[in-house]
Design a protein around this nucleic acid. Structure first.
Lengths: 176, 176
DNA sequence: TCTGCCATGTAAGTTGTTACATGATTAT
DNA sequence: ATAATCATGTAACAACTTACATGGCAGA
């Protein structure tokens, strides 16, 4: 269900095309929801059919027409309703942890290499997040309201990547 | 794909029934993979058809027969192959963060209540994880190999819950 | 010339969710 | 009595993934 609401939350902020959304889901929205362009286009059709969003076709030369989507009143209402309903913390599904759990049957070197790869990936993500933090969110308490909310999603990314990085290092230490 | 491998990793450790697996996925295996009993039974049928696991039917009185599953050589090989293939960190999909991102359109009180609910849930999970840690994993460096791997999945749970808890507190502070 | 960007989608297959279905045993 | 536990599944639907499909434009 939440893909629909992630799209609504994005479109409420700013009207855009499926293509734009796909880029956002690959970037900043990706801090909290990931989706492929196929999923997004399909969901947009569905949301428009339901009347939660509406589109304006913008003709272009030399490339396919754009469809600029915006949230309708009905859609905004749906978003608010959804936000107001309590939800549970997301259950975990993590490939790496499955590998660790079953890791004793494999070669230790294999596991250590995988841990090192992940350590590096988390390190990189963390440093790009920290850069964004420095560039755009200097004085958190003085940010405009909307920016505070977006800042919090970035903070969560930083927090989660920091935690993963520390765990990878701990795991490598324990197994070495 | 990884549900199959999570099941294999569980069954390699100990042969058991679909029912047992469902319980494990609701408990310790749930640290890293969640699945419903329907999914598990379906996947077990598929894995057996593929010859990755095999079953032994154990007749019982007064209740349905048990099917005790164990991993075949072929299945173990598949697990090892899968572990050896590098994988990417799991992309995030988190309802609460979608709510936060779009949270500026809602009432602040609604958001704060939801954050508080989650703060509490993470606090509770963290304390049960810490209890397990104290009870079963006193001297990490001296654990038998297999236990080290399982311990690491618990450590990840502790790390992740700690991070979430701290973030919830930070978020509540920033928005209050 | 080749890569990447812009811009849209369809189709097939897999995975996950929700609801339905059964029925004895054990503990409160 | 009632609820929880043991033990298995089916069916329908929703969500997600992977592969396929098109085609011009801009920059290296």
């Amino acid at each position: 269900m939440a893909l629909a609401h992630a799209i609504l939350a994005s479109l409420v902020d700013r009207s855009c095309t499926g293509y734009d959304l796909a880029k956002q889901f690959d970037g900043s929205v990706g801090f909290f929801w990931s989706a492929s362009h196929q999923q997004i286009y399909r969901e947009l059709s569905k949301l428009e059919a339901q009347g939660w969003i509406a589109s304006e076709t913008i003709p272009q030369q030399g490339r396919p027409d754009k469809k600029l989507y915006h949230v309708t009143e009905h859609g905004k209402h749906q978003l608010l309703d959804w936000i107001a309903q309590p939800c549970e913390p997301t259950p975990i599904k993590d490939d790496l942890l499955v590998k660790i759990f079953g890791g004793y049957v494999a070669q230790k070197q294999t596991i250590l290499e995988e841990l090192e790869r992940h350590r590096q990936a988390h390190e990189e993500k963390l440093s790009t997040y920290k850069l964004l933090d420095q560039q755009y969110f200097q004085n958190p308490q003085q940010l405009p309201e909307q920016a505070k909310f977006q800042y919090l999603t970035l903070l969560n990314g930083i927090s989660s990547e920091t935690s993963w990085l520390a765990w990878c290092e701990q795991a490598i230490r324990l197994l070495s």
